[in-house]
C-alpha cells in the first residue's frame, strides 16, 4: 500500500472514530457549560445506549449480519433504531439528573462529580449482571457496499456514520444558536443568575442539556456497535475517556470545540495505530492533551477565563 493510500485509509478510519467521540464529547461539554460539572455517568450512558440500539435492532428482526437490507427498509430501520436509542438514552440522562444530581444542586465542592462516578458504576454493574460479561454481536443490516479509492476502502458504514454525526451536530448547532431554549441554554451558561432573572427556568435548561447530551451519547453508542460489529458492558471507559479528552482539548463548555476535539482524537488514534503502534494510542493521545493544556490551558477553542462581567 502506498503511503498516500495509507494516509487516506487512516483518515477515513479516524474521521469515523472522531465522529463518535465528537458526539460523546458534546454531552460532556453541554453539561459542563451549564453546571460546571464533569458528568462521569456519561461514559456508561454511552454504553447503555449501545445496548438500547442493539435491542431495538433485534426487536425489528435483525440479528447479526445475516439480514441485509437496502433502500427504504434500510433507511426506515436505521432511523427507527437511531430515534429510539436517542430518546431512551436521553431519558436515562434526565433520570440520572433528577434522581442523583438535582438533590445536590446547592452542594458545593466535588460531591456532585463523585456522585456521577457512582452512577456510572451502577450502570456498568447493572449491565454486567443482567446481560453478562461476554461481547455481543451487533446487528447490522448494512449491505457490504464499498468503494475503492486507490488501495483505500470506504465502506457504506463509514458514510452512514458521517451522515448521522454531521446531521446530529448540525441539528444541535442550530438548536443552540437559533431556538428559544437554545438561547436560554447559552444565557444560562454565561450568567445563570441573570438568565434566571430574565424568567429562564434554570432547572428546565439543565434537564434539556442532560437529555440532549445523553441522546447524542446514545447515538454514539449505536455508531460504536455498527462500526465495530460488537458491544459490551466495558466499552464506556475507553471511549468515554477519549471523548472527555476531546471535550477538554477543544475547550470544555464549547460546542464547536467538542466537535473539533473529537475529530482530532479520532485522527490521532487512527494515525498512531498505523504509524506507531495501537498499544501506544493512549500514550500519544494523552501526551498531546498535556501539551495542548500546557500551552493553551482553556483548550483549542476555549476562553482563558469565563467572562461573567
Amino acid at each position: 500500500m502506498a503511503l498516500s493510500d495509507l494516509l487516506l485509509q487512516q483518515t477515513i478510519n479516524g474521521l469515523s472514530l472522531g465522529a463518535m467521540y465528537a458526539l460523546l464529547a458534546l454531552g460532556f461539554t453541554l453539561v459542563y457549560g451549564i453546571l460546571e460539572l464533569i458528568n462521569f455517568s456519561h461514559f456508561n450512558v454511552f454504553m447503555v445506549g449501545s445496548f438500547i440500539g442493539l435491542w431495538t435492532l433485534q426487536l425489528m428482526g435483525i440479528n447479526g449480519q445475516a439480514v441485509v437490507m437496502t433502500g427504504l427498509p434500510l433507511i426506515g430501520v436505521m432511523m427507527t433504531a437511531l430515534v429510539v436509542t436517542m430518546v431512551l438514552s436521553g431519558g436515562l440522562g434526565v433520570l440520572i439528573e433528577r434522581l442523583s444530581l438535582r438533590p445536590l444542586r446547592d452542594v458545593k465542592g466535588p460531591a456532585p462529580m463523585i456522585t456521577t462516578i457512582g452512577v456510572s458504576y451502577v450502570l456498568f454493574n447493572i449491565v454486567l449482571l443482567t446481560v453478562g460479561a461476554d461481547s455481543k454481536n451487533y446487528p447490522n443490516p448494512l449491505p457490504p457496499v464499498q468503494f475503492a479509492i486507490g488501495d483505500a476502502v470506504l465502506r457504506l458504514r463509514e458514510i452512514l456514520i458521517w451522515v448521522i454525526a454531521v446531521l446530529l451536530m448540525l441539528g444541535l448547532h442550530l438548536f443552540v444558536q437559533r431556538s428559544r431554549m437554545g438561547k436560554a441554554m447559552r444565557a444560562t451558561a454565561q450568567d445563570p443568575e441573570a438568565a434566571r432573572m430574565m424568567g429562564v427556568e434554570v432547572d428546565r435548561v439543565i434537564v434539556i442539556a442532560f437529555f440532549l447530551g445523553s441522546a447524542l451519547a446514545g447515538a454514539g453508542g449505536l455508531i460504536f456497535g455498527l462500526y465495530y460489529n460488537f458491544t459490551s458492558f466495558i466499552i464506556g471507559f475507553n471511549a468515554g475517556l477519549r471523548a472527555f479528552t476531546a471535550a477538554v482539548l477543544g475547550g470544555i463548555g464549547n460546542v464547536p470545540g467538542a466537535m473539533l476535539g473529537g475529530v482530532i482524537i479520532g485522527l490521532i488514534e487512527a494515525m498512531g495505530a498505523q504509524f506507531i503502534a495501537s498499544a501506544w494510542t493512549d500514550v500519544i493521545i494523552f501526551s498531546i492533551l498535556v501539551l495542548v493544556l500546557v500551552f493553551r490551558p482553556a483548550g483549542l477553542l476555549g476562553r482563558v477565563a469565563p467572562n461573567k462581567s
Binding site: 438561547k183 447559552r186 444565557a187 454565561q190 450568567d191 443568575e193 441573570a194 438568565a195 467572562n307 461573567k308 462581567s309
Partner: peptide, 9 residues
C-alpha cells in the same frame, strides 16, 4: 447591577 449582559450573545 453592573449590567450583566450575556457577554457572548
Amino acid at each position: 447591577e453592573a449590567r450583566r449582559l450575556f457577554p457572548r450573545m
